[in-house]
């Protein structure tokens, strides 16, 4: 993995546990999550309709879309509950010196 693809999101204390923040980079938008066992990242928009998951509810390892309650696994991106049926893209995350980075391809 080349270093230049790791994009800094912010500090680790910018996200509460079992919560997420929205992160925009160039023309893309992401959600970055803090779960009990670490940080994760997915695409920002729900795969079902045009709504950002930043306003969704994080429960355990799942993010639930605020519009129609489609549910995705945050770690795998798997669509778990309709109306969502298309998986959510996930991105690698690393923490370095209390800063969160995501790897955007």
């Amino acid at each position: 993995m080349s270093e230049e693809n790791w994009i800094e999101v912010g500090s680790t204390d910018s996200i509460e546990e079992e919560d997420l923040i929205r992160f925009d980079h160039q023309d893309k938008t992401f959600c970055v999550y803090r779960l009990t066992d670490g940080f994760y990242a997915t695409d920002g928009m729900c795969t079902h309709e045009t709504v950002h998951l930043e306003d969704g509810l994080v429960m355990d390892d799942e993010i639930e879309c605020p519009m129609h309650q489609g549910i995705f696994n945050i770690k795998s991106g798997e669509a778990l509950s309709p109306p969502a049926c298309e998986d959510l893209k996930t991105y690698p995350v690393k923490v370095d010196n209390d800063k969160i980075f995501i790897k955007i391809d």
Partner: peptide
């Protein structure tokens, strides 16, 4: 506006 009430309604 789309997305603004879902989380609280779910809770």
């Amino acid at each position: 506006i789309v997305g603004k009430v879902g989380r609280d309604i779910r809770i």
